[in-house]
Design a protein around this nucleic acid. Structure first.
Lengths: 148, 148
DNA sequence: TCAAGATTATTGCATATGCAACTGTTGTGT
DNA sequence: ACACAACAGTTGCATATGCAATAATCTTGA
C-alpha cells in the first residue's frame, strides 16, 4: 500500500475499469474476425438478433442494445447491401419495417457462432469450469442494470 | 430449452457477449458524466494514467491500453488544449515526450475519482460484499489475457 | 563508422459515428 | 373530424476514428 497513490487505488479497485479493459480487448478480437465477413460489431449483433428472432422491427432491435435508431438504420442498410437481411413492410404499420434474414444470412450463422465460441473460449481460458459458471452467474446479475 | 434456438444458446452462454453489453452501458454512463469536463473516455483514461504516474512517454501510455500511437497523440493534443497536461522534452531522447499533469490537471483528479466511484457503485449495486470481491477477483484473472 | 532497420510521434485522407433536423405515419384528446 | 403530440425511420452535416504515409531520431550490426 505504501507505493500506491490514490489514482492507482481508484483504478485497481474499479470493477468498471477492468470490464472496460476486457471489453476493448474483445472488441478488437471480434472486429478482426468479423472483418473477413465485412461486418462491424453492431452489424454482427443485429445479425445475431435477427437470426434469433425473425421479423422484429428496427426499433425493437435497437431497444435490445439501447442503440439509437440511426445506427440500426445504417447498419441494416449495410447488411441489406450484403444480401444478408431484408426489410419488408410491416403488416400492421406503414411506418415500420420487419427485418428478416435471407438464405445467405442464415447460411452465415454457423460462422458467426464459431467466432463467438472461439473468442469466449480464449477469454475464459484462465478460469476453471466452476469459476466460469460463477462468473457467468455474476454477469447475469449485473446485466439487467446495464440494460436500462 | 424447448423454445430456445441455437442463436439464443450461443448468446446466452457467451461471457463475452454479456461483458460487451455491460461495457457499452458503462461507456454511455461514463461518457455522459465526462462530457461535462469535455473529456472522452480515452482522454479520461490517459488523465488517470498520468495522475498515477507522472512523466510517462506517449508510447508507454499507449501500451497500457494497447491504444495506437495516433490516438494517444490526438488525445493529448486535446488534453493539452484544455490545459490539463503538458508535453515536455524527454531528457534522454529527442523523439519522445514526457507527459505531465498541470496544476489544473491535478485539481481535476477528485472529480474523476468521484465519477469512477459513482459509476462503480451503481454497477455493482446488485452484488453483496462477498460477491463483489469474488467478481473483482475473477476479472483480475481475465485481465492479463486481455492485455496481450 | 555508417547504412539499414526500428522506434516515436504526427498528419492527410477516407470512413464511421453522433447529433439534429426531416419525412411520413400513427395515436390522442377534444 | 381535426389539431397536436408521439413514433419509426432516414439523412445532412460536423466531428471522431482508423489506416497508411511521413518525418525525425535512435539502435544495431557489418
Amino acid at each position: 500500500m505504501s507505493a500506491m497513490n490514490e489514482t492507482e487505488m481508484v483504478r485497481t479497485s474499479s470493477v468498471g475499469w477492468m470490464i472496460q479493459r476486457i471489453a476493448r480487448h474483445l472488441d478488437r478480437e471480434m472486429s478482426a474476425r468479423l472483418a473477413e465477413h465485412d461486418l462491424s460489431i453492431l452489424q454482427f449483433a443485429i445479425m445475431m438478433t435477427v437470426l434469433e428472432t425473425d421479423g422484429l422491427t428496427q426499433a425493437s432491435i435497437g431497444a435490445q442494445y439501447s442503440a439509437p435508431a440511426y445506427a440500426i438504420s445504417r447498419a441494416i442498410d449495410h447488411l441489406e447491401g450484403l444480401g444478408l437481411l431484408e426489410r419488408r413492410r410491416h403488416p400492421k404499420s406503414r411506418r415500420s419495417h420487419t427485418i428478416h434474414a435471407t438464405e445467405k444470412g442464415q447460411s452465415l450463422a454457423p460462422a458467426l457462432y464459431t467466432i463467438v465460441r472461439e473468442v469466449n473460449t480464449e477469454l475464459t481460458a484462465p478460469l476453471g469450469k466452476w469459476d466460469k459458471a460463477r462468473f457467468q452467474d455474476l454477469l447475469t446479475r449485473l446485466l439487467p442494470q446495464a440494460s436500462r
